[in-house]
């Protein structure tokens, strides 16, 4: 039986008092993941928003052992912590929680190494599609056309000119015991995957889509809705894979145009019809790539 929202414990292992922006999805991700992972967990965070809003020394919002090191070595650090724990004869869960910058760009070699060695750890990437902590700089995860401070909208170049890197597929290609993409807009799916990651041995990679009201410039109340629209428009796909083989794909009940997704986000405000069409093409391609192998559903 998979977990339900009502099965989660009341106690927070990531407490209130943290200083995330109002409407930030990252604390929702982290708090609920920790409820699934439980008390016997050691958390590592590299440089990211979570590191900053999760506490200012000596005050921290964590109720589990927590440490941080440099930006690029999440994979290496959690490997070392897990081995030290093993040497002590314990079996604590070791989790590294990095942002998209620390995963897509800066942390990818340590991550790839740890995955290849099949270390017994969980790596969580919460993906808010730019370096939000330092003030919204573009990352490998930023989608086409999005305005950031390093891809500003000018007369000649309107926002980022490249597409989002497909990090989840890079991790699937490592053929690790378990990888999954998640979104908090789908709580049941989210909890099931978190539970599965907890109960699997070997390297596990969880990639959570995490809307950022400050960086994406949308109403803080719409954070969850943005996660939902991302999946429904094809800009984000929920699936999981074991040893490189896809075992489950969640296909949304309806498909919405990309326009619906970008409508309420300030980072896409400058979009012309041409740019919308280009982003739509990308989403259609993704949609076909991910859901094309599924049996065709009869139109209602």
């Amino acid at each position: 039986m998979s977990l339900n929202i009502k099965d989660l414990p009341d106690e927070h292992l990531f407490t209130p008092g943290h200083t995330a922006c109002p409407g930030c999805a990252a604390p929702i991700v982290v708090r609920n993941l920790m409820k699934v992972f439980g008390k016997d967990t050691i958390v590592y965070a590299p440089a990211n928003c979570l590191l900053v809003f999760g506490g200012t020394y000596p005050y921290i919002a964590w109720k589990v052992p927590y440490l941080h090191e440099a930006f690029e070595n999440t994979g290496a650090c959690i490997s070392g912590v897990k081995r030290a724990v093993k040497k002590l004869g314990k079996d604590s869960l070791v989790v590294g929680i990095a942002g998209d910058g620390g995963t897509y760009d800066i942390g990818i070699q340590a991550l790839s190494g740890a995955a290849e060695r099949n270390e017994d750890v969980i790596y969580v990437c919460y993906d808010n599609e730019a370096y939000m902590n330092t003030g919204i700089q573009r990352s490998g995860s930023t989608p086409f056309g999005a305005a950031t401070t390093t891809t500003p909208v000018g007369k000649k170049i309107p926002g980022k000119t490249q597409n989002k890197k497909n990090m989840a597929e890079i991790m699937r290609a490592h053929e690790i015991p378990y990888m999954a993409t998640m979104s908090i807009a789908y709580p049941k799916d989210f909890l099931r995957k978190a539970e599965k990651a907890r109960d699997t041995r070997g390297f596990r990679y969880l990639h959570v889509f995490s809307p950022c009201p400050t960086g994406w410039r949308h109403d803080p109340a719409l954070s969850i809705e943005m996660g939902r629209r991302a999946v429904e428009s094809g800009m984000w796909t929920l699936y999981e894979a074991e040893y490189g083989r896809i075992t489950d794909i969640y296909k949304p009940k309806r498909k919405i145009p990309v326009k619906e997704y970008i409508r309420d986000q300030g980072r896409f405000r400058h979009f012309t019809e041409e740019m919308v069409a280009k982003l739509q093409e990308y989403a259609d391609h993704k949609w076909k790539q991910m859901y094309g192998s599924l049996p065709e559903e009869k139109p209602e």
């Binding site: 209130p16 008092g17 943290h18 109002p22 999760g54 005050y59 921290i60 964590w62 589990v64």
Partner: peptide, 26 residues
């Protein structure tokens, strides 16, 4: 610099101590 939950003259520091930061006035 690693601390557990520690009672000091400034109140609780270390794990779980950020609850002192009341964010309601935002």
């Amino acid at each position: 610099g690693s601390i557990g939950a520690l009672e000091t003259e400034a109140g609780l520091v270390g794990i779980g101590s950020f609850v002192r930061n009341k964010t309601g006035d935002w």
